[in-house]
Every structure is written in C-alpha cells, then in structure tokens.
C-alpha cells in the first residue's frame, strides 16, 4: 500500500487535531536496506549532523546517509534538517560491550536524544520509518511525499497537544527500534510509569505520555520477552474482579503479571496502536474512555478512532466493531508476505 490512502483517511479526522503535530509510521518501506537500522533524525544544523555522525561512527557503520526527500508546501514551515542514516552496529563493539545490536542502537538513540543539542532521533527500526512534523497530518503526508513509499502497514496520527508545546519531535508516532506508538488520550499514570521505566535505562525527555508508552512496550516486549497479549494484560490490566472470574490457569497468569508489573499499569483515557515488525496491535484503556473501531476487508484490517476514517479508505468495509476496553486487537502480516 502506498501512503496515499492513509493520508486520505486523515482528512475527515481534521478536527481531531489542531495543526500542531501530525505523523505516520510505515513498515516494509526499505527492502533494499532491510538488514540495517534506519535512523530518522531532526538536526538543527550542519554542525549537529557532523557531531551526530561522529558519535554514531564510534559504535556502528553508516552504510548510507541522505536527506529525507520532502516537498515545499506553505502548510509546513520551519523545518529542521531531516536525515536518515542506515546503520549497522560493529561486531567488535557488540562483543566488547556484551550487547546485542538492538540494545546498542537503543542506547545510541537515548544518548543522542538526551545529550546532543540540536539532534533528535525520531525513528530507528529496521525496514520501517516514522515521518512526522508540526502541521495537520494530511499536509505532513504531502510534505514527506508518502505516496512514493510502499508499506505493508501504516499508522497515522493528528495531534491536539495539551501538555506540551507543539514541536517536530513531539508529534506522533513515537518510536524506539521497530516499535512505534500512536496514541489518542492523556494518561493519568504518567509519572508512576515514567519513574518506574527510568530504572531500566530509558530517559523520558519529551514530557509527553506517548513517549513513556513506547518505552514500556520496548521494555516488556524486547527486554522482558512478554507476548503482545501479556503486555496488554500489564498496561491495561483486567480489574481484580474480572481476574477472579477467569479459570484458574488464566487467573494465575493475570495475577502474576499485575503484581510484578503493577507500576506499568496505564490509567486514564487512551487508544493506542503499536506498530511492530510484522504487524499492529490496537489497545484501549480498561475503562474504554476513548473511541476506537476496527473493520476488515479482504486481507486488510483497518483501525481508527472513528468509522469515518475507515470508510474513506474502504467504503465496502466489513465486520466493523468496537473492541472492549483492555481487549487487544493483534494483526499480523501473513508469513512470507514481506
């Protein structure tokens, strides 16, 4: 699928954002570089790029670097330098630091984002990329020429920032490695989650709740090795009373997850879509304080805050339903399809 359709879907959602941030994540877009981590970066100036490159070269090889192609449009202004680097961590570095390549890249991203002035990595997975800016999402899509990219899965987001000023890095999706999050809502558990997750090497620098959800996903899925379903039972944990009604085996598991990761329970309204290598997961908060609908057509699955956005993409959509609060909807690409 090219980016055209998803840009169209954002138009009826125009009033759900206020022009202070829009963005897209696309999976499967760099087949020719699929073994390399694609770092998308905002850079204030040439000096920031030079120092960033120098830092990257300490631990990894840069196989290709280029400006991300954009279009000039009056709707998007004040853009920073926008670059992408395809990188591969050096084996010798991995061996001496006793790290796997994901951890090495994640640490480099954290270092740049917390310590390097004028440089910000907003995407860093393999064969995927995030494109975001200050503006309405449909304009952002036009700006980044997304109709030129082909992906097996797309997510998009229009922002209505409440807690933080609109800036380029603050738009959704938020990404770390190949995990990306778009999030509708505002979480009330933010500081409990943040102060817990920061014990494990993450640094929340953006004062935005979506960032912390991204790190929680990375921590639970990559570092702890939980399944998507298990992760959903942590961040949108069933109520104690719901757990009590499950069968014994399920009960044991749910109680265990809720007790061990109690500080990663996310409260307050949210509907999120987690993009990952090979699929998507959609999840609502356990009270379902935000709208979210799912529909299907042939081999495609559509998820949106409103049915209208789905109808634009696929007028003949079938099986439309609203998942219950805390009920994860997991979509995986058929094996061998990408």
């Amino acid at each position: 699928m090219t980016g055209e359709k998803i840009i169209e879907s954002m138009k009826p959602m125009h009033d759900r954002s206020n022009g202070l941030g829009g963005g897209f994540a696309a999976y499967g877009i760099y087949p020719e570089y699929k073994d390399f981590f694609a770092l998308h970066m905002f850079l204030d100036d040439r000096a920031a790029r030079k120092s960033c490159e120098a830092l990257l070269r300490e631990t990894m090889e840069i196989v290709h670097a280029e400006r991300i192609p954009t279009r000039t449009t009056p709707a998007i202004t004040d853009e920073p330098l926008i670059w992408r680097f395809f990188v591969s961590p050096l084996r010798s570095v991995l061996a001496s630091m006793q790290l796997n390549e994901e951890e090495c890249v994640a640490r480099a991203v954290m270092t740049i984002n917390t310590q390097m002035k004028g440089a910000y990595v907003f995407s860093g997975g393999k064969n995927m990329g995030v494109f975001k800016a200050v503006g309405f999402p449909e304009d952002v899509g036009y700006f980044y020429r997304l109709e030129e990219y082909e992906a097996y899965s797309w997510t998009a987001h229009g922002r209505y920032p409440t807690n933080t000023p609109g800036w380029w890095g603050g738009a959704h999706p938020f990404a770390l490695l190949d995990y990306s999050i778009v999030h509708n809502g505002e979480i009330s558990s933010y500081d409990a989650n943040r102060r817990f997750i920061e014990m494990f090497g993450y640094k929340c620098t953006l004062q935005t709740d979506t960032e912390v959800i991204t790190y929680i996903a990375d921590y639970l899925l990559r570092k702890q090795g939980l399944s998507l379903e298990e992760m959903a039972s942590v961040i949108a944990a069933p109520f104690w009373s719901t757990i009590a009604r499950k069968d014994e085996c399920e009960q044991k598991k749910l109680l265990y997850l809720r007790k061990v990761f109690s500080s990663l329970l996310v409260t307050g309204p949210f509907s999120i879509i987690l993009g990952f290598d090979g699929g998507l997961m959609a999840l609502n908060d356990r009270l379902k304080l935000r709208s979210m609908v799912v529909g299907e057509k042939d081999d495609k699955v559509f998820i949106a805050s409103e049915e209208a956005a789905i109808r634009v993409m696929e007028p003949g959509v079938e099986n439309i339903y609203a998942p219950a609060g805390g009920e994860p909807v997991i979509v995986r690409v058929k094996e061998g399809k990408f």
């Binding site: 009330s188 933010y190 500081d191 102060r195 944990a237 809720r258 109690s262 409260t267 307050g268 356990r286």
Partner: peptide, 16 residues
Amino acid sequence: GMGVNSIEALKGNRLM
C-alpha cells in the same frame, strides 16, 4: 478526581 482508577497507578506518581 485525578483520573486514576487503581492505586498502583498513583504509586510514585509525583506529578500529582
């Protein structure tokens, strides 16, 4: 009032 529906999500939540 804080929009928190479990005490776990309040623990260490100093922004509150």
